[in-house]
Design a binder for these strands. Structure first.
Length: 454
RNA sequence: GUGGAUGUAGCUCAGUUGGUUAGAGCACUGGUUUGUGGUACCAGGGGUCGUGGGUUCAAGCCCCAUCUUCCACCCCA
């Protein structure tokens, strides 16, 4: 046997009924984005590496797919460099393009480039694949689709609130039960400032995360082990023990970080957001979660993450406020906030919960059986008429055995089969068979249209 | 990057302590049925058992290497 063809690790083919379901997600997301007044853009699959590098932290740089320069890509490299085998150094010489890692950074680049043409605050959405050279596993792919919405050019917290409403609306439309977790980078910075150890903030969030599992004593032990001073740990106790509703939690945090200006700003931001939300009738649970840190290092204010309540697959949506992403590209002082829906994970969750509507199939509604030349001639105008009426329809192309043709329709999930042989032609009628019930009725062309439309 | 599994027909998988010509279901082709699918029955095609070495009279099965895919950690959508 010839060697089996395959596709790269972490990538997938999408067959017709997967596409129908994926489009159901994309359509739902898109519709909500549009209702909220966002406009669509697209950017190239590849960007200059200079645009991408250094925006996603150290890890991110490693996970970038790099594209080999065209032509003789070794021409600018001398042999000593080759022998040294310093891949990092070599990379910059043989590769100047990379596949996009997310949609936010290319968007920032886009905004800077078109700053004179855009109307600010600019509301855009973007639905495109991104690539990460990650190790694939459950719910993790090397090529996956993100659906981004961002508002850039406004500091208003109303934008955060709108994004939360969008999240709520989309998951309500999809029928998914989710929990939206929120945190604020400024609060994290305030905590770090308060205990005087900015670089310990990660250890602290990890510790808070373990509270449920191992209890406060063990957490304190671990903090001490990780080098946090006992004085700082003492200060942290109210934060480790956070309880109550979001507003209550904020008050408890406030007591700890009252001396940190930036921290208090974060508290203030969150209070404002929660105040807005209180008057809105949201279905999703919103939860302040201090362990939410988000690796992307460009976030500066609120950060979001959405998880499915019923399937454990990591976050299915994430985002946050970034105050100066365009600054790196030469346009300082432009603040934005955005959020990204992971279409592929949403798909996985919905599949597992069997939440797709049953009629999300792409097959034609009706198929004409092919009995031969004469019958074909009779059917073709009727077929054309159905299509003019917007009824998706097809005719089997060969006069094969009936069994084969019926089987074809059945397997494709075509709901109706139209039969017109000698006797029907004589009467000027069509026999329409419902493939689900097996019932058959003799109809005129006009009645056929009406029946299929209904 | 670290750790653990996996690989047998197009797909999902069986295959006993190593023992002749390697199996099932689904799918495919043909037939029972020349105008009726999804439910029945019969027949057929399709595999150098991931690859390369080794042990053995004998390897799908044991050993080594390598590749692939999957799962967990890290990080993320």
């Amino acid at each position: 046997m010839a060697q089996k063809p395959s596709i790269p690790k972490g990538t997938r083919d999408f067959s017709p009924n997967e596409m129908a379901r994926r489009n159901y997600i994309f359509d739902t997301v898109k519709r909500v984005f549009q209702i909220y007044g966002f406009q669509q853009i697209e950017t190239p699959a590849m960007e200059n590496l200079s645009t991408l590098m250094g925006k996603y932290g150290e890890e991110g740089d490693k996970l970038l797919f790099k594209i080999l320069n065209s032509g003789d890509y070794l021409s600018g490299v001398d042999s000593t460099e080759l022998i040294q085998q310093n891949s990092q150094k070599l990379t910059t010489k043989i590769s100047e393009k990379g596949l996009r890692y997310d949609l936010t950074v290319p968007f920032a680049r886009y905004v800077v480039q078109y700053q004179n043409d855009l109307v600010f605050p600019f509301r855009r959405y973007q639905i495109q694949p991104v690539w990460r050279a990650d190790r694939p596993q459950k719910g993790r792919y090397r090529e996956f689709y993100q659906c981004d919405v961002d508002i850039i050019g406004s500091h208003s917290l109303l934008n955060e609130v709108e994004l939360i409403q969008i999240v709520d609306q989309i998951y309500r439309n999809l029928g998914l039960r989710v929990i939206l977790k929120m945190n604020n980078r400024k609060i994290l910075a305030g905590i770090a400032e308060t205990i005087g150890e900015a670089d310990r903030i990660i250890d602290i969030t990890v510790a808070i995360d373990k509270m449920d599992k191992i209890g406060i004593d063990k957490v304190n032990e671990e903090l001490l082990l990780r080098g946090v001073s006992s004085e700082a740990i003492l200060k942290l106790q109210p934060i480790l023990n956070l309880s109550g509703d979001n507003i209550g939690k904020l008050s408890q945090i406030e007591q700890v970080i009252a001396n940190s200006a930036i921290g208090m700003k974060g508290i203030d931001e969150m209070r404002t957001i929660f105040r807005y939300l209180a008057s809105m009738n949201l279905e999703s649970e919103i939860q302040l979660d201090l362990t939410l840190a988000r690796g992307l290092n460009y976030y500066t204010g609120a950060i979001f993450e959405v998880k499915s309540k019923d399937v454990s697959i990591g976050s299915i949506t994430g985002g946050g406020r970034y105050d100066d992403l365009t600054g790196i590209f030469g346009l300082p002082g432009v603040s934005g906030v955005g959020i990204s829906f992971g279409a592929d994970r949403i798909y996985d969750v919905m599949s597992q919960l069997d939440l797709f509507p049953k009629d999300t199939i792409s097959a034609a509604r009706v198929m004409f059986v092919n009995f031969g030349d004469k019958e074909e001639k009779y059917c073709l105008p009727i077929l054309a008429a159905l299509r003019r009426e917007g009824i998706s329809s097809e005719i089997y192309p060969d006069p094969d055995k009936m069994k084969k043709q019926m089987n074809y329709a059945n397997r494709k999930g075509i709901k109706f089969v139209a039969l017109a042989g000698e006797s029907e032609i004589q009467e000027g009628m069509i026999n329409l068979k419902n493939m689900e019930s097996g019932e058959q009725q003799l109809l005129s062309a006009m009645d056929l249209v009406a029946t299929l439309k209904g």
